[in-house]
Computed example of a mutant assay.
Amino acid sequence: MKDIKVGIVGLGRLGSVHAQNLAFKIPGCKLVAACSLEQKELDWAKDYLKVEYTTTDYMKMVDEADIEAVVIVSSSPEHCWMIEYALDAGKHVFTDKPLGCSLEECKRAEAAVERHPDKLFFLGFMRRYDPSYADAKAQIDAGHIGKPYLVKATGLDPEALVESCIKFSKTSGGIFIDAASHDIDLMRWFLGGEVTEVYAAGTNFKHPEFAENGDTETGMAMLKFDNGTVAFLHVGRTAPHGYHTETEIVGTEAHIRVAGVPWKDRVMVYDQYGARQEIVENFPQRFAEAYLLEMVDFIDCIQKDRKPELTVYDGTKATLVTYAITDSFHTGKPVTVKY
């Protein structure tokens, strides 16, 4: 089976993870092109990854590079037009979340996918590939917890990165849009329903700069689903101990908790503070295996001409829910989700 030739756009924190996986760790593919606005990132791709073709022009890469697939890890507002351009050029497409930043953008991506049913579109909700979350889903599907009716999700960025979060909050659209889409995708996946209504609130006790930017350092939301199930969301940016992701699925017969304590490894440190374990520092570290497994599946889907479980419509629905939660946060009122 021949190697799939891939080009990537975006070589930042997450893009560099995907690029290294494609270049070194995934059988059946060859990373041959890279696009970035930063020349130092292109130099890194050429020198370290041995990429043959580099450019600062995305359309030029799609049109000129000898590639069959494009991996999009650019800034969120660029996703949908890049998806459209690559599909219209006859390329298979992987894109990181979110699908788009508005309903109009998402519909543009949907139309592009629908125009090209012979091309693969792959959405990067990588937590479905995390072994712990995948095992939780398998246990739910097997009926081991009875009927799942409640999901409680927590996602906290570390206090150590709060200054970059404050800067980003000026343009991000808010904490729910920025940080909640993975949790919403998991809620839909685990509960088997669609969100119908949301109510959100937020608090600022450490960093008033978030409020000055129209955002919040900590956000909470309750979500109602069309099958009678419910979910609670807690996102924040000031965890003192490190990056913290935790999900609990409550069923009629049992509960499942994923990553209740986000241990970095199995090492126990004994010092003047007692016996303790270190915590993961960031999301690329916590989900390193998931990022690799999702890209393995992307290449495998192309080679075997099969469709992934996730669709472009999953991306639209997650985007709509994050915007509804953001509207509720700003208005202080429940918001009906309209698809």
Rank of each mutant, 00 (worst) to 15 (best):
R306Q: 14
T252W: 11
L99E: 02
F287I: 02
S181D: 12
H207I: 12
E194T: 03
L31D: 11
L161D: 13
T154I: 13
A19S: 11
F210N: 05
T203W: 00
K2R: 13
A112F: 12
I83N: 06
P262G: 14
E246P: 09
Y313M: 10
S164Y: 15
M1V: 15
T203K: 01
Q20K: 10
V267K: 15
V280W: 03
A200E: 01
A86W: 13
G174L: 04
K30V: 05
P240Q: 11
Y313S: 07
F121A: 05
R127G: 13
Y291F: 07
V113D: 08
G251Y: 05
A134Q: 15
E217W: 03
H255K: 15
N204Y: 07
M187L: 00
E309G: 07
Y129H: 10
L49Y: 09
I140Q: 04
M222A: 14
M220T: 10
Y313R: 08
I166A: 12
Y129G: 01
E52Q: 11
V73N: 10
H116W: 10
R188N: 09
D305A: 12
V71L: 13
I83K: 04
C301D: 04
K46L: 08
K304V: 07
L310C: 05
V113C: 08
N227W: 01
V93K: 10
I166Q: 15
P117R: 03
H144Q: 13
H18T: 01
D314V: 10
E194C: 06
A288F: 14
H207S: 11
V261L: 11
P131S: 11
E212L: 05
E289L: 13
G214D: 04
D327M: 00
D314P: 06
I249G: 14
V9G: 12
V93A: 13
A45W: 12
L156P: 00
F287M: 04
Q139I: 00
G12D: 06
L320Q: 01
E78D: 14
D157Y: 04
A19F: 14
P262S: 08
N213L: 03
P240V: 04
I72C: 06
Y273P: 02
I325S: 04
E197M: 03
V113S: 04
L310D: 04
E163C: 00
G155V: 10
V195Y: 03
G28W: 06
L223Y: 00
W189S: 03
H330I: 09
T196D: 01
M220Q: 05
A109C: 02
V321W: 01
V267I: 09
E278H: 15
A65C: 08
D327P: 00
E253V: 01
L37C: 06
M222C: 13
D215P: 01
G219Y: 00
T218Q: 08
H234K: 12
F24A: 06
K5E: 08
E281Y: 02
Y199R: 00
M126Q: 12
K264W: 03
G315C: 13
G90L: 08
D178A: 12
G124E: 09
G274M: 10
V162R: 04
I83Y: 11
K167T: 05
